[in-house]
């Protein structure tokens, strides 16, 4: 398994946000982590990516223990991620966002950068070329010189994915990629995700919107920080606990 999570737990004061969650993501899969609002999805996400430290439990990536490691270490070991709310460098242009994200591979040192050595120039040319390719793939070429903060919401989310791809991750973690999107944008985003899987990348996607299930190989459903179901898409669709969790939410709404 590429990503293994054992008994992940997080207490905020007395409140248990995530309770002994175990799950795994296999190489090349698209795994969905779903649940109603407030189920603790984003907390799980932040625990895996090192933004917050777990109270207990273990996160293993590619056979190595990465529990509680800093976000930049996790990025180095091969996890790329998007953000739900502030996905971008807002003052950069679309292209600059992706070029800046080519920080790890290839990596240019301080002195190489300062003295503009051939190695540095080669690296930068590569980063630029790859960035343009990625922008082309996610359909943002036409707005490459726009400032990111002026982009429409759907484009910003797409740019978030492009940025995460620039890390050249083995595992891509998407935080509510469909949030706030209209039907066309949802279809487009899901096409992109399928393309990314075609590149041989593993995806863990956190989503509130059940439409994501069409793409997933396996699904884990959580509510109140606890796992309430796991299995194939069909299992989850028929799981009474999952249905109840979502129905309950609709009743409240």
């Amino acid at each position: 398994m590429l990503l293994d999570i054992h008994g992940l737990t997080k207490n905020f004061g007395g409140l248990i946000a995530v309770d002994h969650l175990s799950m795994s993501v296999g190489e090349g899969q698209i795994v969905g982590l779903i649940g109603p609002n407030g189920a603790g999805k984003t907390t799980v996400f932040n625990l895996i990516t090192g933004v917050i430290r777990p109270s207990a439990g273990k996160v293993e990536f590619d056979g190595k223990d990465v529990t509680g490691k800093s976000p930049h270490i996790l990025a180095k070991s091969g996890i790329g991620r998007t953000f739900q709310l502030t996905p971008l460098f807002t003052d950069f242009t679309t292209l600059e966002n992706v070029v800046a994200s080519y920080y790890l591979h290839p990596r240019s040192g301080f002195w190489d950068s300062l003295f503009n050595t051939p190695k540095y120039r080669h690296n930068e040319a590569y980063a630029l070329e790859q960035s343009l390719k990625i922008l082309d793939m996610v359909g943002l070429s036409k707005v490459k010189d726009e400032r990111a903060k002026n982009l429409p919401h759907g484009y910003q989310k797409m740019l978030g994915i492009a940025r995460a791809l620039a890390v050249q991750p083995r595992l891509l973690m998407l935080d509510e990629p469909l949030g706030g999107m209209n039907t066309d944008e949802i279809t487009f985003t899901m096409d992109i995700m399928a393309k990314v899987r075609g590149l041989g990348m593993t995806i863990l996607v956190i989503e509130h919107n059940m439409q994501i299930l069409d793409l997933c190989d396996r699904v884990v459903a959580i509510n109140f920080g606890q796992k309430i179901g796991e299995g194939s898409v069909k299992d989850i669709r028929n799981n009474p606990d999952v249905i109840k969790a979502y129905l309950g939410e609709q009743n409240v709404a």
Binding site: P71, F83, F89, T90, A100, L114
Partner: peptide, 30 residues
Amino acid sequence: IMYRLEHSRIGLTWKAVAQSYSVASSIGIN
């Protein structure tokens, strides 16, 4: 030297950090 620093990847990285430290660390920037 300062102009060169700013317009190289070093400056780009610093500007990235200034805009969002969480996004910056997610792409591997310490």
